[in-house]
Design a binder for these strands. Structure first.
Lengths: 130, 130
DNA sequence: CTATGTGCAAACTATTTGCCGTCTG
DNA sequence: CAGACGGCAAATAGTTTGCACATAG
């Protein structure tokens, strides 16, 4: 990943709580899962705020947005380098420590793009589904 | 990618046309782009049929479903091994010939998953956006 | 001939937006 | 104190489903 500029967004209490809860979890929750968790601490928060803030936090580089096989996004508050593996049976996403490196020469690929980086997603079968 | 079992689905004229049009394109169209293209040949086709058949063709291994940064899926009828690169500015996805290989030892990663395979997505800036 | 597929319209899910009052820096 | 943000409800985008008829194998 390129050097992200962590945009200076305001640290409101809604954003603080969303961020804190997201960092506690390693389950890559969906927006509405986050909504229900955060509502325990901020009962008046609106789902629109959750969506707006997940987008803002992601744009500012505080969290990562994961696209899934389903039609909804999942969010990841773990900003240490790690790799995701998805279970082809239950679709759950788990973390693997460390980033898998591609051989240096991947930038020599035949393309007229200016290559900036890459993401690797593993897939397999999780212990529960074996 | 694992050896896909090409499921035996019925080759209806709707499916045949969808498949043919998809193979002509290298633009990774969305479901409704496909709908408008296919409608030129089958004016009475319904968007529901397009969605159902894209899902069926994908499940049967005839096409590939791409999840994107946006909220909609894109489809790829090119089944030769290739890698996708996404433009971080305009979000378009292009093809790069050949599959990038990970070093053999990627299966030794610290995880309790049974690792089956991986996908690599590159990102960069396309010539139009430079 | 029958299980599978189709068209249509209605339903549904995830996400976004307009408006307007509130709060952060 | 101005611009950014939040709550609410309504809107939208993408996709799915129920039903009755049509068709591939």
């Amino acid at each position: 990943m390129k050097k992200d500029k962590l945009g200076a967004i305001r640290l409101t209490k809604q954003r603080k709580v969303i961020l804190e809860e997201l960092k506690k979890l390693n389950t890559h929750p969906t927006a509405d899962e986050i909504y229900f968790i955060v509502k325990k601490r901020l009962p008046k928060i609106s789902i629109a705020t959750v969506y707006r803030n997940l987008k803002a936090l992601s744009a500012a580089g505080y969290i990562i947005t994961l696209k899934t096989a389903e039609n909804q996004k999942r969010f990841d508050g773990n900003m240490q380098e790690h790799t995701h593996i998805r279970c082809v049976k239950c679709n759950k996403i788990h973390d693997i420590e460390g980033k898998i490196k591609l051989p240096q020469n991947y930038k020599n690929l035949k393309t007229n793009f200016d290559i900036l980086g890459y993401n690797i997603y593993l897939y397999g079968i999780c212990p529960n589904c074996l």
